[in-house]
Amino acid sequence: MHLMFIFLTIFFHYVACLDYDGWMNIKVDHSLNCASEKYCKRGTITLKSIRAGTAIIDQIPFNRKHIKELQELAELDGFYTIRTLVSTAEGKEIEFLSSVKAKGLLENGLSDIISAWVLPSGEVIAVTFQVMNSTQTNALNLDSEYPINSDFYLRHVDQAPVPDTASYIQKLEREREAREKGELKDNRSFLAKYWMYIVPIAVFVMISGAGNPEGAAQPSR
């Protein structure tokens, strides 16, 4: 009965991990036009269902001061950085930082890609930020507002298989016990068993033969 309870507990925990679903909220901050603060609000990304992966993106458009600071960074070949704070239904909050070249963001007309990498258990292990590699420069028109064009992707990460260490240790233990009881037969050949003794003797014979060549022919009398 006790073993059955343990089995059912493990089973239901495994199923729960596979069928995990819940909401996710990603607060997006950036380092432009933030006055005295290092980071200030850029927007939010909300998912009602992690399994569905459909996101609602709400971002504050850039103004002329944002663009000016971004252009100054681009002239210095600097980076534009975002900070994401991920909140889930389990009450966890995780912070990630990611950067792209400011020049690249300008050339792509403030178009970027944000991706959240999620384990089967629903745990977010990374949030990445990138711009598409584009050969065409999208110039920004002189305006009072510049909308940010973001695509969001939920990336599912498959965990690598865990080695069955316990079974391997049990196998080694069984082999050790069998050897101690004399139940484990050694079916190796004679050479496979005793090569460590045969090789030194063979090398010694070869060296002795090389050091004592046959005597030279006797001169005729």
Rank of each mutant, 00 (worst) to 15 (best):
F5L: 07
I6Q: 08
I6C: 08
F7W: 12
F7C: 06
F11G: 03
F11Q: 08
Y14W: 12
L18M: 08
D19M: 14
G22N: 03
N25K: 11
K27T: 11
V28G: 02
S31E: 04
N33Y: 03
N33L: 09
N33T: 10
Y39P: 01
Y39N: 04
S49Y: 06
G53N: 04
I60H: 07
P61D: 05
R64G: 07
E69F: 12
Q71E: 12
E72G: 06
L73D: 02
L73R: 01
G78I: 07
T81Y: 02
I82H: 01
V86A: 05
V86K: 04
A89W: 14
G91D: 04
E93C: 14
L97H: 10
S98E: 01
K101D: 05
A102S: 02
G104F: 01
D112V: 03
D112Y: 04
I114P: 03
V118N: 00
L119A: 00
E123R: 12
T128I: 02
T135M: 11
Q136C: 10
Q136K: 13
N138F: 11
L140T: 00
N141D: 14
N141F: 11
D143C: 12
S144R: 09
P147T: 02
I148Q: 07
F152A: 01
L154N: 01
R155H: 02
R155S: 06
D158V: 15
Q159L: 15
V162T: 11
A166C: 04
I169T: 04
Q170V: 11
K171T: 13
R176E: 08
R176F: 11
E183K: 15
D186C: 09
N187A: 14
F190C: 05
A192Y: 06
W195I: 04
I198S: 12
V199K: 11
I201Y: 08
A202M: 06
V205M: 09
S208D: 08
A216R: 15
